[in-house]
Amino acid sequence: MTDLTEHEVLVESAAAPEAPVGRSTGWWAMVLFIATESATFAAFLASYFYLRFSAKGPWPPTGDKAPDLTLPTIATVVLVVSCLPMLLGSRLAARRSRAGAALGTLGALAGGAAFLVLQILDWLSEWPESTLSKDAYGSLFYAITGLHTAHVVIGVGMLAFLAASLGVRRAAARPRGPVMLVAMYWYFMSVVALAVYVTVYLSPTL
């Protein structure tokens, strides 16, 4: 076997694909998106506490219905617990188990759908004693819970699309990336759910 010339070595080195280094573009995009949305939710929650402690009189104001903890507690627990199948699916995706990743995604999807149903039922229980335009309390209550619910709807859509992609094998070759990105978003939604629960539902009872 003859040794390669210097020119041939340079040609082969140039033709060889480079291994990816560091985090993917999708990972950084999701991190930046979560950071931006974190600031948005933080501003809303800070506004809630500012108006609450600036208000003269009871909170919620007289005439508004105090939040019932039953439905929000169940909904929050369901959403947080749905992170477990998402975590399992993410780990199985790292092992290139398409079926396992799909099952984990569907488990998280079911938890998200249940949360949405419970949130709608909670809104119905609050109406019409507390409305969006009645006072500052009602405006903040529906704005904060509505903002979070809208993000959960987006997450449920992402989970549904991911599950469908895994089902038709489009994400079968390298499922880790897409599953990991959706999992990051879903964990973020669960953390926000806890913050919303403590702020909007639990704090008025303390």
Rank of each mutant, 00 (worst) to 15 (best):
A14S: 06
F188S: 10
Y201I: 00
R52C: 07
A39V: 10
S13I: 05
G57Q: 12
L32R: 15
L106F: 10
V196F: 02
A16K: 14
V11P: 07
Y137F: 08
A19H: 15
S38T: 03
T199V: 12
I144V: 12
D135Q: 08
Y48F: 06
G104M: 08
P204A: 02
L69I: 08
G57A: 08
G26S: 05
S130P: 04
G89Q: 01
Y185K: 02
I34M: 02
L121H: 03
A15F: 12
S133T: 13
A39C: 09
A171C: 15
V11K: 15
L92Y: 12
G104L: 07
C83T: 07
R174C: 13
T70Y: 10
A163I: 01
A75I: 05
A143N: 10
A66H: 11
A35K: 11
M30Q: 01
L181I: 09
D64P: 04
L103C: 15
L140K: 00
T205S: 13
F115L: 03
P58R: 03
L92W: 03
L166T: 06
L79G: 00
K65F: 02
L87N: 15
S82T: 03
F49T: 08
M189F: 08
L162D: 00
V117Q: 09
P175V: 06
P178C: 13
L132F: 13
L45Q: 08
V200Q: 04
Y50Q: 09
M1N: 09
M1G: 14
T149V: 07
M1E: 13
V198S: 13
G167S: 07
W27S: 11
L132M: 07
Y50L: 10
P61V: 05
R96M: 07
A171G: 11
L166G: 00
L88Q: 13
R174L: 12
A99S: 14
S203K: 00
V156K: 02
